[in-house]
Design a protein around this nucleic acid. Structure first.
Length: 220
DNA sequence: GCGACAG
DNA sequence: ATCTTGTCGC
């Protein structure tokens, strides 16, 4: 699998609009996935390192890790993050021995200006069930969820519910969850809660984050 | 027209 | 994303 490389923002947007119809928003998706993959990318100037960490869906123990290093081919443009991170992430996913039952992305999925964020793009290109978990607000409006872990509110955009603002730890800033491909919002949130037994962010993204940084440092 | 804006 | 010290709290 490979991402088409657009030359301009307009081209990138056209690709998103073209792929958007291939999205499978049919649920429920994996409720008790045996394996869950986390993906993340670290940068140092134009160098980058992408990492994929596959965890056991029950014990959350690391089952497999893959990293790839390379150079950025597309700058960061809000709404077009996938074109910056997907090439390397797909390379890493290709080298995986285990086929994860769910992929957790760092960023947004359906909650996107054209309803096709990183999680959707990755899902459509790999065919794998995927969800997006963002750390900060991007698009959509929401009310503040209750202070306890598990409470949430709708993330809405143009009158549509495009995701959820979910509290994963008591009294800690919530995360922004939106579906990517082949998973519904309820299932996405249940998975996120299972992946956050101790910290605000899913263990999958925590491991992938560490991995990508280490790979970047080790690639000198 | 002017800002805001996942990572 | 990344640049960065000390500091409050368990």
């Amino acid at each position: 699998m490979k991402v088409r490389a657009p030359r301009t923002a307009a081209e990138a947007e056209a690709i998103q609009d073209e792929l958007r119809p291939l999205l499978d928003l049919t649920g429920p998706g994996p409720l008790r996935p045996a394996t869950v993959a986390g993906v993340d990318v670290a940068y140092d100037g134009d160098r980058l390192a992408a990492a994929v960490a596959v965890l056991d869906g029950t014990t959350l123990e690391v089952v497999e890790e893959v990293t790839v290093t390379g150079r950025t081919a597309f700058g960061y443009v809000p709404g077009l993050l996938a074109f910056r991170e997907l090439p390397a992430l797909l390379d890493a996913l290709d080298r995986l021995t285990v086929v994860p039952e769910l992929v957790v992305c760092d960023g947004y999925g359906l909650a996107h200006p054209r309803r096709f964020g990183l999680a959707c793009h990755l899902g459509v290109l790999t065919g794998l069930p995927s969800i997006g978990v963002g750390k900060t607000a991007f698009v959509g409006g929401c009310a503040e969820p209750g202070p306890e872990r598990g409470s949430w509110t709708d993330l809405t955009l143009d009158g549509d519910v495009v995701g959820r603002v979910l509290r994963t730890r008591d009294g800690v800033k919530p995360v922004y969850v939106s579906v990517g491909h082949r998973v519904d919002l309820d299932t996405a949130c249940r998975n996120v809660l299972r992946l956050t037994p101790a910290y605000r962010l899913p263990e999958t993204t925590r491991v992938a984050d560490r991995l990508s940084r280490a790979a970047l440092a080790g690639a000198g």
